[in-house]
């Protein structure tokens, strides 16, 4: 009796997603990094909540307060001894990662930077995935004119040197009409222009790969029997596309999401270094690019803190993404 139930149960759970999860769990590292990612996620959410509360109350952000203002006594006296203070246990806990150029806690800054990384990574990838997925589906499924337009669009975009495209877009969204329009939106209070800027740049630049993959996959899927069946039942294109075709290509979307996530948080560093990224709030990119004036004076802690956080988050997303690919796309695994 029990044996039978078990068999039945196993047979029941053999949905592709469960199957994937089973495969995913086999990798110890994958689990470890998933937990790490989760920790980062929680940090980011906490930082975001704190920020929203502070904005709501109209307070200055905590990361902007100097340690002296918060009642710590680091080394009273000259300003320049207070700033750039090396990591110290004397100012536990906010000073354990040292103070930055402005006498502010590096710990609070990397903490807030986690939020920036997630906002940029999540919304940037979200936008790029949405564009890539929709266009890919349309191109692959509708064919003909839609296909040709989309293929033309992405082959044109792909042949522009991507650095140039990125910087040009970054300049556009930071200046001129778009920036003015954005500044008046209610959301501008919560998501700064710099963040919006990077999200748009990532979203509009990195959808090409996914679009291509989805289109190719849809071209295969749409000839399958069940799609033909749905068509003969008289279902509309839209319904078939999103309800029947999409689930079959969704693993591509998930894998691509993780790739774009990494690209987005790395681009934040480069764009901020070039002066077109985040500027209103602390971010890892900002801490790293300020290090160009600090490292040679032996001030390594802001760079080390931001670099390490960036490294750990990217590493976990990369590894999780890899493991997901292996789990979702078993053909690729030996």
């Amino acid at each position: 009796m029990t044996v039978v139930t078990e068999t039945l149960a196993t047979a029941e759970v053999r949905s592709p997603w469960r199957e994937a999860w089973r495969r995913y769990r086999k990798d110890r590292f994958a689990k470890l990094f998933l937990v790490m990612f989760g920790v980062f996620f929680l940090l980011a959410v906490t930082a975001q909540i704190i920020e929203f509360v502070e904005i709501g109350q109209g307070n200055d952000p905590t990361y902007d307060r100097s340690l002296a203002q918060m009642g710590y006594e680091v080394s009273p006296g000259k300003m320049f001894e207070e700033t750039h203070h090396a990591p110290t246990l004397k100012a536990f806990p906010l000073g354990i990662l040292g103070l930055n150029w402005n006498g502010k806690s590096v710990l609070l800054h990397v903490f807030h930077g986690t939020k920036v990384a997630f906002v940029v990574g999540f919304w940037g990838s979200m936008l790029s995935v949405l564009i890539g997925m929709t266009l890919g589906l349309m191109a692959g499924f509708l064919g003909k004119f839609a296909d040709e337009t989309v293929v033309y669009l992405y082959s044109t975009l792909a042949s522009i040197p991507y650095l140039l495209l990125m910087l040009a877009l970054a300049f556009i969204f930071r200046e001129g009409k778009v920036a003015e329009w954005y500044r008046d939106l209610w959301i501008a209070k919560y998501v700064s222009l710099g963040l919006f800027n990077i999200i748009m740049v990532i979203g509009l630049t990195y959808w090409v790969t996914l679009c291509r993959l989805v289109r190719a996959e849809v071209l295969k899927v749409r000839e399958l029997d069940y799609v033909n069946a749905a068509r003969s039942l008289g279902f509309g294109n839209f319904r078939i596309m999103f309800k029947h075709v999409l689930p079959n290509v969704f693993h591509l979307v998930i894998i691509n999401f993780s790739l774009t996530f990494v690209i987005a948080i790395k681009s934040e560093v480069i764009l901020t270094f070039l002066g077109v990224g985040v500027d209103k709030e602390p971010s890892w990119g900002q801490m790293i690019s300020f290090a160009k004036n600090e490292l040679m004076r032996g001030i390594w802690w802001p760079l080390a803190a931001a670099g390490a956080m960036l490294f750990l988050l990217t590493l976990s997303v990369n590894y999780v993404g890899d493991a997901l690919r292996d789990a979702l796309d078993p053909k690729l695994k030996d």
């Binding site: 000259k78 320049f80 150029w101 160009k292 004036n293 600090e294 490292l295 040679m296 004076r297």
Partner: peptide, 30 residues
């Protein structure tokens, strides 16, 4: 770039260096 320019001076590969107007506090301490 600031970092290589300062490392150049430090290593003695440039004989003098003028801190950029806006980064004085970065390279001059008190």
């Amino acid at each position: 770039e600031d970092q290589p320019r300062w490392l150049y001076f430090k290593a003695g590969y440039s004989d003098f260096i003028f801190p950029p107007k806006d980064h004085v506090a970065d390279v001059v301490i008190d």
